[in-house]
Design a protein around this nucleic acid. Structure first.
Lengths: 224, 224
DNA sequence: GTCTATAATAAGATAGAC
DNA sequence: GTCTATCTTATTATAGAC
């Protein structure tokens, strides 16, 4: 692995664990047993590192969050979809965990962020419209955009929301919490489900409820 | 106004405007034409100021977010309810704007925050149960808790969400955006509306849609 | 490419005079 | 209660040797 990539990976890891504002460039280089000078040989500054991480996030989102192209919309398809999305948000949780602050310090990143989000939103709209056309959902045309936006908000901030409520001082949550988020999205979507797609939603719900149960981590059981 | 209160008010104002991490104690005292020493005479440290602001937020929330006690659940009642809640969140937006970071630096505050949120959640649950009992909503018992939690997430992060999407570099949003948030909450609640309460929801929707239209600020029209 | 040493800045916080 | 002056510390970042 190239030094540059090592720095990006270590930064991502530390940012997620402790929060971006609590990790200095010195922390990063120390974590890698590397001199600060070396870090600054590879990156102009901390902002530059964050932007590099954002590039990874961007490409993950754009690569995996695509309108479905197969004909059949079954539960497997939707399942895979949500799974992927929530996992990406988990992998880059430091970002949403501190979004306003990070964007307030970097105008360029703010513009990039907004552009990515517009793409995500437009794809979400398209997907919901597809689900409507395919008879999976019954929804008024005028409600598609608000629904897409609501689901985006929920998905984006789910991890942050759970983290602020977790009792563990480390500030980590378990996979179970991620799956709870998926269940929450399903609950909203289901209120728009067409009669003959209810079973699809029920199957999905069942699947994720199993995941929640089976992936509960010890840290969830910590009592004060 | 006492100096202590002046400091709290100025801090809240500056935190909301620029973000808590971008405002130092020196900024606050300079804004008040006051010496840093004087500020530190009234507060032990910055953490102490933030805790004082949190106390105000806490009391606003606890005071205004109460299960309704009148018999009649009409649109005026619900309207007042949401209005109040969204306005509180607007007044203390710096908090949710940077929640994870702020809580990560103050274990005591994190505990207080969690306790407040548990109260809010338990009250939300109670209110939804009341609405069910009064025949306003039709909802399965098992879905009350997830619904309450979902609405809480949406309400809490709505302002932050809109701020990250706004184009204005100042990072401010208009009242119109707040009312949009209320509309979004209504849209979710409406999917559970009992047939004879649909008109209530429609009236509410109409009211807030008017608010959105009439309160659009010039800054919303800024083009790049 | 990588290291050591160090400069520059800014934030948080205190001492002591008035 | 309030001010001025100042200290400490952490963070970002650079210079110059290897």
């Amino acid at each position: 692995m190239k030094t540059r990539d090592k720095i990006v990976q270590a930064s991502l890891e530390l940012f997620n664990k402790h929060g971006e504002r609590n990790i200095s460039t010195n922390h990063i280089s120390a974590h890698l047993n590397m001199s600060p000078g070396n870090l600054y040989y590879h990156f102009r500054n901390k902002e530059d590192i964050i932007r590099s991480i954002f590039t990874l996030y961007e490409s993950d989102i754009i690569k995996d969050f695509k309108p479905y192209l197969t004909q059949e919309v079954n539960s497997e398809l939707l399942l895979n979809y949500f799974d992927t999305l929530f996992n990406i948000l988990w992998n880059y949780r430091f970002l949403y965990n501190n979004l306003a602050d990070i964007l307030s310090r970097d105008e360029v990143l703010k513009v990039r962020y907004r552009q990515t989000q517009e793409q995500v939103l437009s794809r979400s709209n398209y997907i919901i419209a597809q689900l409507k056309d395919d008879g999976v959902l019954i929804i008024d045309e005028s409600e598609i955009a608000p629904l897409a936006d609501t689901l985006k908000l929920m998905t984006s901030f789910w991890v942050s929301y759970k983290l602020t409520q977790s009792k563990s001082p480390i500030g980590s949550i378990s996979k179970a919490s991620l799956y709870e988020g998926v269940l929450r999205v399903l609950l909203i979507l289901k209120t728009y489900a067409a009669p003959n797609s209810i079973t699809t939603f029920d199957k999905l719900k069942e699947h994720y409820q199993e995941q929640v149960t089976s992936s509960i981590q010890p840290e969830d059981e910590i009592k004060e």
